[in-house]
């Protein structure tokens, strides 16, 4: 059950570029884009998921830099397909003007891959990293 601080707001105020905090209080990235349900005639679109990762951030940048950013993101993804990391709207715990807290731990989120890769491949190899 998502708790919203305000009942009427805009995407730039509360959602876009906001920091995601997981259930352990650790940062889990930022909202780069929003996924809305496809609009039917009588039914306005509804927020279904938060999207993060370079393939979501690229289109918002626009221009050559945006497509270049998106291409890098696509190549970085170990899993094929260029759909960005998706965090279902049901996972959102609380939204206020400071951050968006989630119900899940960041390890279970899509966007965990790049962090785990750095952790294991680089930082994990340097002595003294565990304490």
């Amino acid at each position: 059950m998502t708790r919203w601080d305000e009942d009427e707001f805009t995407a730039n105020d509360l959602l876009l570029d906001r920091e995601l905090i997981d259930c352990h209080g650790m940062p889990a990235g930022r909202v780069d884009d929003l996924e809305l349900s496809d609009p039917e005639p009588g039914e306005p679109p509804v927020l279904t998921a938060l999207l993060c990762g370079p393939t979501a951030f690229g289109p918002r940048l626009g221009g050559r830099l945006g497509t270049w950013w998106q291409a890098i993101g696509r190549r970085l993804r170990l899993v094929s397909g260029s759909y960005p990391n998706r965090i279902d709207a049901g996972l959102i715990d609380h939204v206020d003007r400071l951050e968006i807290t989630l119900l899940a731990a960041r390890e279970h989120l899509d966007s965990y891959r790049f962090r785990r890769w750095t952790e294991e491949k680089i930082i994990g190899r340097i002595p003294g990293d565990t304490t």
């Binding site: 920091e19 990235g29 962090r115 930082i123 304490t131």
Partner: peptide
Amino acid sequence: MGWSWGKRHPPSA
């Protein structure tokens, strides 16, 4: 980018 940062977390975090 919204990554976890800072020396208050252990380096692996």
